[in-house]
Amino acid sequence: MQQLRKTSGNLYLSHVNLSFINGKNSLPVLIDISLEISSGLFITVVGPSGCGKTTLLKVIGGLLTKNDKQISLKGEILVGGVEPSQAKFSRMFGFAFQNPVLLPWRTVSSNVKLPFELIGHNNTQDGEKILDLLKLMAILNFADAYPNQLSGGMQQRVNIARALVHDPSILLMDEPFGSLDELTRERLNCVLLNIHRVKQPTIIFITHSLTEAAFLSDKIIVLTHRPAKIKCIINSTLGPDRPINIKTSIYFARLVEQLRAELADIN
């Protein structure tokens, strides 16, 4: 099982090019993206606004495929050794979108249960598992509430719980904490690191916050302006242990500085 997980979280992109096609016009978004990510790593993606980070995430997650008429997609993408559209059917992905995208007619726990329903997964322990996740996200008291009774931060926690519930081998997170206040964000960062340590999914995490990127990642991918190329990939100098006070260390400060320099170099 552990062995299977190790390979199913592998990610391989080779010379990926993507353009949006609108009539005769073609708008290049991703240019020559090549990546090799081994299973279980925490990867963050940073880059200027609108550079194509979300598009990259959608390509990896099989939401944009070569069959889509509005795009032209070239290159090779393998997720755990198979194409993303195939990996999708093996339910390898957990998506946490920028907006929480909770279904307003479902309670919190029922929203988190959605992946199980769609997969056709039905275990007696499912209910328990959902409650455990809600507890981990500190929203257990709101299990029976409807989404529009929750604050933005709480909705995001439900969003993340839902992305995790079916134990995906790859978690794709599109700036999930972007709209949260600093303290909530820090707390959820720690929760996420904890989950990563325990379940070891590969995580691709988009963010605009340099400190968040530095705090969470094993590797940081810096993208250029659109059409996005990979500017550089920074390996974290921080160890696997990430207590919150690591943010005051000199290594952390250097990492953030390096990141800032790379981003400033783009502009």
Binding site: K58, G61, G62, L63, K88, F89, R91, F93, G94, F95, F97, Q98, N99, V101, L103, L114, P115, E117, L118, I119, H166, L172
Partner: peptide, 17 residues
């Protein structure tokens, strides 16, 4: 919502679902 559709798509939901 386009994103809700993406959510269903990411879990390979059928047209019926």
């Amino acid at each position: 919502d386009e994103e809700a559709f993406d959510l269903f798509d990411s879990l390979a939901a059928s047209k019926w679902q």
